[in-house]
């Protein structure tokens, strides 16, 4: 059944915080991608890998993404704390941005408050699980 929406209260609400977060995290991911791509080119990507590998590294600077290229030794420059921090940032901002977006889309089409709450709890669990698995991969690869 169609139901009119309640007007959200003014000030710091979840919707407002996430509205700001979505824009900030979008910009952060764009900058992180440019940084990863620039770093790869500086490390020698132009002669050592094809375009597809460079793009995989741009989206996520993980050593597993360049393992099949012509890099003589991945341990020289392509592994390390700098890339791990960048990967952690991309995971946190990307996964949170994505799951919040999924929440907004779902809550636009599900009008029952009870089902909304159940789905919100499910998304919260998935959000934490995906982030935990991704952090584990980052620090074991």
């Amino acid at each position: 059944m169609l139901r009119s929406r309640t007007v959200p209260r003014r000030g710091w609400s979840l919707e407002f915080v996430m509205w700001v977060f979505t824009r900030v995290s979008g910009a952060v991911m764009l900058i992180a991608g440019l940084l990863a791509m620039a770093g790869a080119l500086w490390l020698g990507a132009r002669t050592q890998m094809d375009l597809a590998t460079l793009m995989r590294w741009t989206f996520f600077p993980n050593p597993n993404h360049v393992i099949n290229s012509n890099i003589p030794d991945v341990n020289l420059g392509w592994v390390g704390a700098f890339w791990q921090v960048l990967q952690t940032l991309i995971i946190f901002f990307g996964v949170t941005h994505g799951f919040n977006g999924l929440r907004v889309v779902i809550e636009d089409y599900v009008s029952s408050i009870a089902i909304q709450r159940v789905l919100r709890a499910l998304l919260l669990v998935l959000w934490i699980a995906v982030m935990a698995i991704a952090f584990y991969i980052v620090f074991t690869s």
């Binding site: 597993n64 990307g94 996964v95 994505g98 799951f99 977006g101 999924l102 889309v105 998935l126 995906v130 698995i133 991704a134 584990y136 991969i137 074991t140 690869s141």
Partner: peptide, 21 residues
Amino acid sequence: SGVGMIVFVAMHVVSAFLLQN
């Protein structure tokens, strides 16, 4: 496109874990 990407990223994280670990 947003839903497409988050579904891909979530599945890719799980598949990478299965493959790597």
